[in-house]
Design a protein around this nucleic acid. Structure first.
Lengths: 154, 154
DNA sequence: TGCAATTCCATACTAAAGTATGACGGTAAT
DNA sequence: ATTACCGTCATACTTTAGTATGGAATTGCA
């Protein structure tokens, strides 16, 4: 269904987020300018101190700036901070056991240790690993770990 | 030598960075308030439009806010993005070849492929891997990769 | 020069991993 | 009920990994 394009949405979503940020920023800036200007004109005769006005504007826009800067950096951050992408697990049609075995392999466990941990027989684990390698298009456990890491599966 | 405390400096530096950011922010805010107030008083009689003033203040403080937000997030970012710690390589007394082999193992290469890549014989690679495992206190290549990752060696 | 460490290579062996194939019970969809 | 997986286990086999030695060339240093 929607999972087909799941892994390629991230850059698009980042771009979208940036545009939304800029738009929201523009809107808030416009509204605030108008509002403050209104207050300015209304209360200036009453000698509202201008540095209070400055402080208010500065504080508000600093806050907006912080929010903007953080949300802008968040996009980049998710790029190089590895997060587990479970949508890819589904896309590769890894079943529960295979994914489980993959994680244990990545932790350095041998087939026998995995079998003991999951209360299964050694041949079962070998079957799972073989199917796993076929689905990941690799030939060994170290290759599987490397590929799984590059795909953010683990 | 100096490498002993290298890996533990990061949180301290993050804190320091944050304090510096706040200080710089305060300074700039103070200076700008004074400067702008000066301009305000000087040119107000000349009917300098108030929304230009607002726009200038807003832009400047938004920029400051963005810079602040980004530098605040950067500290967090470096916390969970693992960096290669070469000092630990020395501490474990891994020599050039062993570290080289370790990296290739992590990329999923077999001993034979590593031998071909480094123009060495297969037994040589086996010697290196065995020594490597002994130094890392592990028994297999997947364990070695896992341990090397947890130690930020690779 | 002698010594130690490094790097390379070899042989021989054991252990583990990987491949191929088949079988059987369970379960979910058609 | 049949098809189609999924998960389990088995056997048999080949390949790779890992261990234990030891030899030989090189380099740097005492």
């Amino acid at each position: 269904m929607a999972g087909t394009s799941g892994s390629w949405e991230t850059p698009v979503m980042t771009m979208t987020k940036a545009y939304v940020s800029v738009l929201v920023f523009g809107l808030i800036l416009g509204l605030l300018t108008i509002t403050l200007q209104f207050f300015e004109y209304r209360y200036y005769v009453g000698r509202l101190n201008t540095d209070i006005y400055t402080a208010v504007v500065a504080t508000i826009f600093t806050a907006i700036g912080i929010w903007l800067g953080m949300s802008l950096l968040k996009g980049k951050k998710e790029k190089n901070s590895p997060e587990i992408d479970l949508s890819k697990v589904k896309k590769l049609k890894l079943n529960e056991r295979e994914y489980e075995v993959l994680q244990l392999i990545a932790q350095g466990l041998s087939n026998q240790e995995i079998a003991d941990k999951l209360f299964l027989a050694l041949p079962t684990i070998k079957t799972h690993t073989s199917n796993l390698y076929w689905k990941l298009n690799v030939q060994s456990r170290t290759q599987a770990v490397h590929k799984a890491r590059s795909l953010n599966l683990i």
